[in-house]
Amino acid sequence: MMLNGTRSLMVAAVASLMLSACATHTRYVDPAADDGPVAMTLDYRDFERAADNAVQDLLSSGAVDNPSGERYIMAVSRITNDTMQRIDTDQLTKKIRVALLRSGKVVTTTAVGVDGAEDQMNQQARELRNNDEFDQSGVQQKGTLKAPDLSLSGKIIQRNHKVEDEQQVEYYFQLSLTDLKSGLAIWENETPIIKRGPNDTVAW
């Protein structure tokens, strides 16, 4: 019994030495050919999938297609992070904004946001008005900023369960597009992403 104990100790020590010897090396990951392992946490693939799903649905719904042919102006409202991870919700919204801009249907304003303007320069550039040092012909005139027609808001939810010996983590990417004229949500979308893995430890 005793000897077994010491022996297994030595085996464990040798094993841990061997493990530390073959450490992994750093390498680039190509998103188009990433066959790497999946984590229980949210990674770039999840954001990409959710954004792709939302954009396809949004464009094909026709909700952002202005009958007059002009582009709609969209403001990004609050996307609540209701997960257990410190993520930046811009990871989701930026992808959507880029795709919408490319589609030619929607342009996002950086002058209006929940916590003030996303780009402070919108205001600062206007403070040059009546400043003698500046050529006033290039300074933005009053009444040129465009007010938004649409507002994008949403929530990323995480719910965990134990399923037999495993842990199931459910993420829901919920998005709403509000027509600011009427206050009605003219488009809504939910992309669930569900992962199942070990229950040894917490999912963050």
Binding site: P31, A32, R45, E48, R49, D52, V55, K95, R102
Partner: peptide, 21 residues
């Protein structure tokens, strides 16, 4: 699976990402 889109000239039209589903 993944779909790649092309315009009239055969050039790739970018979508949200390049990942596969």
């Amino acid at each position: 699976w993944a779909v790649t889109w092309f315009d009239e000239d055969g050039m790739v039209v970018p979508g949200v990402g390049e990942g596969y589903r």
